[in-house]
Nucleic acid binder design. Sequence first.
DNA 1: AAAGCGGTACTTTTT
DNA 2: GTACCGCTTT
Length: 791
Amino acid sequence: MTDILKDLNKPQQQAVTTTDGPVMVIAGAGSGKTRVLTYRVAYLLSIGIAPYNILALTFTNKASREMRERVASLIDPSKAKSLWMGTFHSIFARLLRAEAPKIDYPSNFTIYDTDDTKRLIRNIIKEQQLDDKTYSPAYVLSRISHAKNNLISVEAYNEDFEIQTQDIQSRKPKLGLLYSIYQQRLRKASAMDFDDLLFNTNVLLRDFPEVLYKYQQRFSYILVDEYQDTNYSQYLIVKKLAANNENICVVGDDAQSIYAFRGANIQNILNFKKDYPEYKLFKLEQNYRSTQHIVNAANGIIANNKDQIFKKVWTSNEAGEKVHVVKTANEGDEASWLTSRIFSIQANDQLPYSSFAILYRTNAQSRALEEALRRMNIPYRIFGGISFYQRKEVKDVLAYFRLIINPMDEDAFLRVINFPARGLGQTTVSKLLSVANDTGKSLWEVACNPTDYNAGLHAGARGKLEQFVTLIKGFGALLFKVNAFELGEKVLNLTGIRRFYFEDGSAESINRRENIEELLSGLKEFVSARPEEEGETEHSMRTLDEFMQDIALLTDVDVKEKRQNNTSDDSNKVSLMTIHAAKGLEFPYVFITGAEENLFPSIMSIGSREELEEERRLFYVALTRAMKLATVTYAETRFKYGNFSFCEPSRFIDELDPEHTNFLAGPGMKKVQTKTIDDFGNGLARFKKLGHANQPTKKPEQITSQKLVNQHPPHQTKNNLTPDAGQTDFSILTPDMLQINTMVQHQRFGTGTVVGLEGGAQNAKATVVFKNFGKKQLLLKFARLKVISQQ
DNA sequence: AAAGCGGTACTTTTT
DNA sequence: GTACCGCTTT
């Protein structure tokens, strides 16, 4: 072990071997931060610390996975397995499951993601009959989230004079009420959102000293990665757990804090000094990643920030090329200029396309870039977008899983009760909802005994509801009897989801089908990938319940990683992503696009110094991703929200030191000018300071373009037959003329075969598979089907 | 039940 | 420009 210390420079070595007492490591970009963390863990193990006594907290699953793998390669892999290493959320979700009853939650509580949460909030706003412009779900959520991250409970929120005044002044006096109802509903559903995982951990550690003591003993060595990104709630958990022996090591870089908008608090770095006066500070200042010009240009940028910890990042790498700055006429030119540039560099230097990254401030910018890359036939990979687990079809299946595991889960219940359609529509659901709200019972409870609660359902609805309840109960009985994959298969088959997506031939359905297949193979992998862990009996089997716990805190990136490992051919592609997504990554050639005022820095952030400094740190992060060459591009005009707008070059371009910058002539362009925290108390003060969102002070200069001439003539699609387009009369049919297998003709969908019939009289419905349009459910009252042939 | 229409709003987002 | 929502029509 001692010889691996040779891989480290002096301050890195100190950061690794100073194991006892509080340690803070300020790690400049590219200075080997991850290396220090992994070596420190390996070092602790090598001096005899038991792996289960080490708690290592990261912000992403990816970071924790990488760290675990790297530790495993340095030392005994079996030891690496029993480390407490993971994201804040996953580690404390695990802890909460073990201790849930203490805070009145069942241990099978559901974790709501942002999507579920938004649905719930939207429903509450609607129920309260509030205007969803004043109370936009996104705003309400961010307000609640900020409160929770600063440990302000519902009670504290509603009792606090200043917060109340603020809300009244901004004419949103009901925020406190919404917060209160939201928390009630989560609890009723036995659900926690992401912020609750941390909030409730704080409650647990505050109210149960014996629990706190237990975990203080267990986690005798604590490491925290990306400390600059911790919020108050996370900060306090760490502080409490470390209070006993203070063997705590935090690693971060204040210059790379780019998540303050989500509640991260750089103050936590500065507070470290106060909390642990005898702490040791190590600064990693040697950059191993970038050229001198890049490092110096980046230093020059960050020097414009007032809030920072002094450090001098330097490198012994070659001087390299100056940072390039290029001006183009518009976003199309920008895209094609940089695309041909990438093409020529890779051709000249025989580089794989994976050496290049194109970064942008907002996802919307990717389109023009993608188009240019496609035109040039350059392979690329785009990061971000809709997460696998967020896709509708995947969420639908997962909602069944959630309901099986936790029938109290209201969001899941509402999501699946009529999917696939089983005649339990809006009317039935609102009846159930009103009973549930009136009696305070869960929807599930009411659905199980509709008669007892006088839900007022018709016999038909009652029958269907009973079928549905029985179906879910049946799955529930199997939860611990069959493995996750088998149960998943049963759910797909017996609920009709499989039929719903698989009999339909439309392109969209094929896509959805593939995603469902992917989910299934995920289940299969999960049940078969039983790692050789200690204490396994032949009975051991991985259940759906475990699967859901596993994926609850996974994100898009994690799924992609997995897929990538399977497919492999992604190595030769240009990477496109937001700067946020690029954090922690490095590329030989980096293009930073859209360096324009109001875009980067974002118009939303130019109102306050704090927010502007965050944008600047973002620019710093972008620059320091580059190993060999960083190129900054901007456009004179950009098509935004359907309008052309004129753009000013970003102020960050002016801040680039000319000594390290090369202003290239773009396509036909001229040059540019050049305290002791008493638990929940302190959060209140911090929260108030935050106040409400800043109003933008400046409007982008915009001209309204005369609308471009509509490119398509008024359409005359072939499928858009009018009744008089040579078709015979479509008479209204009565259901009894149809049977399974009847061939029918539809005005728009053409010919098809009846595969199902339901309902009678007014609401008779037929399920028809059309040759060209796939499966449709049609209300016969409107569909005007014509019988072509029987049988 | 599903499609079509018109109005509206829009950053970043590890969990 | 487009994605999304709610309302209307079939």
